[in-house]
Nucleic acid binder design. Structure first.
Lengths: 191, 191
DNA sequence: ACAAAAAATTAATCTAGATTAAGAAATACT
DNA sequence: AGTATTTCTTAATCTAGATTAATTTTTTGT
């Protein structure tokens, strides 16, 4: 079960086997059905998740009562609410399965313990954060630079198969507009 | 000169003195006047900068020829174009001083060398990236959730003194709207 | 296989913020 | 001190995308 995570780690770093094993031993498996919650707004985010299969999303409900999708995560991605997990503060976000999913999870105290001692796993998690930062920065640039239609087209080009996996209203929300507008865009494309 | 960076590091971690010193010795000082460039679009981002004093910004020019500010950095922040620096790719962004500034810089090869060996400095840079990630996520949430007016008000509340430091048109760009619109908002507030 | 719920579409109307263009204020330079 | 350059403001017009509301299509559960 942890083989997949092990392979992922080995793509980035090569920790001594003992370190790697003691880390993997701390991971717990969880099976989540579509629409089940891993975290609810107002609670503490107790875990960081590694997605083995399926898809997770984080979202919040805005003042008008509308769901706003902040992130998606798929196979081989780490997923959490960094703010709540790292600072041990109440979460403003929900984390929910967007498909039937299988994840590995680790608590903050266990992860901290590992990161106090393992050079290589620190390098691993630093690399992950670097990648995530790059993705976030790119997203911010896109949001500022592209029209709704361009955003959708670009996202489609980058992640053509992912677009099929989640309901359109979630994708619209993630891209920052309404499902009605997404519908309009898609219809225009057909003609 | 590196005293300030040393203090910053010690707020997060406590590396052995030798490690800390050999890191600090690799940092180079640079003095930049307002509007001077540290990185131009189309070049490689060769350094990661620690800001001792002053203010840096990163921006790009969009298709319409308009400057879009992606980030600001002030005292005691690390600043770079992560994408270009980490992946050694051509930069889509410019980095420019928004005030007369003093920075310390380190090249990728030197930083990599340090991070291959120092557990504590890995922990330090991981923590920095965690903070940055939290800030980015919060920004994405704000951008999706708040109107232009709310964005400005919120930013004003979070960073009241910073707002004074940069020209309004840069702030408007950073917040994602035009200087004309910012002017409108500010004028409305007065009444 | 059918009913109920969830998701997607369509079209009409509305609005936050962009665009354009001109003038006023503030800063910087010699 | 005076000119040139940068920055900020104001106001009129315009548009991408929101809102509302009704309808159709798809998915889910029994």
């Amino acid at each position: 079960m942890t083989e997949q995570l092990k392979n992922h780690i080995l793509k980035f770093v090569t920790p001594p086997d003992s370190e790697l094993q003691s880390f993997l031993n701390l991971m717990e498996f969880e099976d989540v059905k579509n629409k089940e919650y891993l975290l609810k707004e107002g609670r503490y985010c107790k875990y960081q998740y590694f997605i083995l299969e399926g898809c997770l999303r984080s979202f919040f409900i805005n003042k008008k009562g509308v769901e706003k999708v902040v992130n998606f995560g798929i196979e081989d991605w780490w997923f959490t609410n960094v703010d709540s997990f790292t600072n041990q503060t109440l979460s403003a976000l929900n984390i929910q399965a967007a498909e039937d999913s299988k994840v590995l999870k680790i608590s903050k105290s266990k992860l901290d313990y590992i990161l106090q001692n393992s050079l290589e796993l620190n390098r691993y998690f630093r690399s992950i954060l670097e990648k995530v930062r790059i993705a976030d920065q790119r997203r911010i640039q896109f949001m500022f630079n592209l029209s709704g239609e361009e955003l959708y087209t670009t996202f489609n080009d980058y992640y053509p198969d992912f677009v099929q996996r989640v309901p359109q209203y979630m994708l619209a929300s993630y891209l920052g507009f309404t499902p009605e507008f997404l519908s309009k865009i898609r219809n225009k494309k057909k003609q």
